[in-house]
Amino acid sequence: MTVAVRVIPCLDVDAGRVVKGVNFTDLRDAGDPVEMARLYDAEGADELVFLDITASSANRATTYDVVRRTAEQVFIPLTVGGGVRTADDIDRLLRAGADKVGINTAAVARPELVRECAERFGSQCVVLSVDARRTARRTAAAGVPQDLSDRRSSGPRFEVTTHGGRRGTGIDAVAWAARAAELGAGEILLNSMDADGTRDGYDLEMIEAVRAAVSVPVIASGGAGALPDFGPAVAAGADAVLAASVFHFGHLRIGDVKAALADRGLLVR
């Protein structure tokens, strides 16, 4: 393979403003997603992800405006996720200038949405976003005799969650990723809710498990904290590595992450 590992910063956007990240003294307005997008583009980001966390539907119009202004100024691929419920939501985002759209809770509630969107817009723009966490089964798998493990030992090792990780679904995240790929998702954005925010590194076992189950690209998300964290995620099977706070707070720069990947012999742009 000659395609480069993608390094992707993710911006949390609330009512048109970046939620985290105020550490950029060289920006006029670090709260403006468009300014942040331009900065990351200039720093060599391979794609951008906007996660719309706007709670009020009344404020969602601002999201379309942000997407529109970003697409006018930034010429790398843009994925937008968060709060996407219907195929018409996707249509509006694509028309505003998004290249890909992440769907999560709505697809869990109704998996056929993945197929409908893939048929209408093409698999290339349907990203299945999976928020997954480890379950108690891992304790059993780690050596506790089967008869002593709890009843959940037969359940999934990684469970799909919704509503920002607050709600468990009992759904096996690996099986769900495979199903969504069959339904037409062109990419899996795999976010570890356990690792998210810890800066302890990606959940490599989760990446390996999903990589083994799907043949579409996998974006690793959650846990990036230091330069040595990125290479192992790729070794585990990720095609792209996503991070949010380490970039926004200036702990890591895109170029440094790419240099660290290149030092491991991985291809970067």
Partner: peptide, 12 residues
């Protein structure tokens, strides 16, 4: 004929 499709990303 590739193990991972779509071919998605930056290539030479």
């Amino acid at each position: 004929a590739a193990p991972i499709l779509p071919h998605m990303g930056w290539n030479t």
